[in-house]
Design a protein around this nucleic acid. Structure first.
Lengths: 259, 259
DNA sequence: AAACTTATGTTCGCATATCGAACTTATTGA
DNA sequence: TCAATAAGTTCGATATGCGAACATAAGTTT
């Protein structure tokens, strides 16, 4: 039973919890505040049901109400806080990433794999860059199209990588986007060999990034770190000749500092 | 009914959601991973009940399981993400706070009021400082004992401030901790007049900080920003003569940049 | 190896928590 | 003023979730 995952309908599955969390997650950057009817529509719940969850979340302090509009409160940060607090290496890594940003003027991040996405868990944003501003801790991006994603996929045991490749839905974000599981697998094998990944304008026009894995001194994989830049500003020689060594240096510094 | 808050036992209150969120929040820095029995003990739930919530959260991807141990996944960051994403000013403020850290070598933060606490929502940590490392986005501290808290309390309408003073439980964290609601109210009135707050070693030995409110160009209160330092390193003259003007400058820059 | 302790898995009767249809009331816009 | 939209509320029904009790597994001690 250990690896068995509950499904909705299983007697031990708590549907009210699942539905309540769905209500919490319906708020996003495009819908920071909504009426009861909007929440019901977006969650496809009966209005009375959605109302009960909104009022319960309000009672618990996770949602506030302004007239007919509901919105999240900072208390929701509490739900993710323990995840961030559970790894004391985060603060150390933050310092190294900020060094990179200070030195190269580019954004640098740490991400971990979660399902088919990477999740940003540490972020040092370069200033005055539009792309930099829109990414923050908690942001998820498809692993298949990011350099950090490919680095983390490269660390998976073969069966898990194959399972990922079997289920991943590939999408043409740009003309350069990888479009077959075969091609993706070939690239990941290459990443395994060379120890880094470069992804160039596959997710968004102009977005170019390089990533390496980062380990603690005890061998534990902490995630992938990257430097992301704009193709118009940084050519491939600079990415390989300057940015990659700097990133590898930061990964090595993390490894030596942690145990 | 607008301002009426549901209570447990009310027919519209969804107890299973409340309990499920309690399970999620039982994980913290000291208990990043726990067995089923530990979760049941810490939440004071029947073991079978705790088990159903853990397995449901596992099915939803918020918790992972290693043998008998359960721990949070990065997906929990998703729950707080919408809150962070809902205010585009956060990225702008981050830049200004990082300028302060770069220039003064001190940590600087933005916090908002949530219940009787302040919650850190933006953070620029000075490097190699123990205190800096332990505070992060999502951290909550008692509003009464922090400079940002007092600045935010000073912004409350009188009835809300009085309600806060009536219910707040004061605690002697240090010998310098304020210990009466009267003294706290006097200080907050002073903060209203002078437009900033200094709190000196009331929460922790050596911890000294100055805070000011920060508004968007349209008058919306965004929170309070602070600079926190160590009393051994920065005297009161420097705090008032150098740090405060710098903070006010950052608040003014935020006001001019946002609308 | 056996006994004991601790932990977890599972079942299922049952009480009640939650669901949603339907009706009422409030708000908004033309 | 009226129609449309939105929200509040009730309550019968029943599916959900609870927890006691028993079974099984794992770890520790003797």
């Amino acid at each position: 039973m250990d690896d068995q995952i509950l499904k909705p309908g299983d007697r031990d599955y708590v549907g009210a919890l699942a539905s309540g969390l769905e209500v919490l997650q319906v708020f996003d950057a495009e819908h920071p505040r909504m009426t009861l009817s909007e929440v019901a529509a977006r969650t496809e719940m009966d209005r009375a049901k959605a109302r009960r969850f909104l009022l319960t979340l309000h009672a618990l302090g996770f949602i506030k109400r302004n007239g007919r509009q509901f919105e999240l409160t900072p208390r929701v940060l509490q739900l993710g806080y323990a995840y961030q607090a559970s790894n004391q290496y985060r603060a150390v890594i933050q310092q190294y990433l900020e060094d990179i940003t200070a030195e190269l003027g580019e954004s640098s991040s740490l991400a971990v794999l979660d399902g088919d996405d990477v999740v940003y868990v540490v972020r040092s944003s370069a200033r005055h860059r539009l792309m930099a501003i829109t990414l923050s801790v908690g942001t998820r991006l498809p692993a298949a199209y990011t350099s950090m994603g490919r680095v983390l996929l490269a660390q998976l045991p073969e069966p898990e990588l194959d399972a990922f490749l079997a289920r991943v839905k590939l999408e043409a974000f740009t003309a350069f986007s990888i479009h077959s599981a075969d091609a993706l697998k070939k690239d990941i094998i290459k990443v395994r060999k060379q120890g880094y990944s470069i992804v160039d304008q596959e997710l968004d026009s102009g977005l170019r990034s390089v990533a390496v894995p980062v380990f603690a001194g005890n061998g534990e994989l902490l995630g992938a770190i990257n430097i992301s830049t704009n193709a118009a500003r940084v050519d491939m020689d600079t990415l390989l000749g300057v940015y990659l060594p700097r990133l590898q240096q930061a990964a090595e510094a993390v490894r030596r500092t942690t145990h």
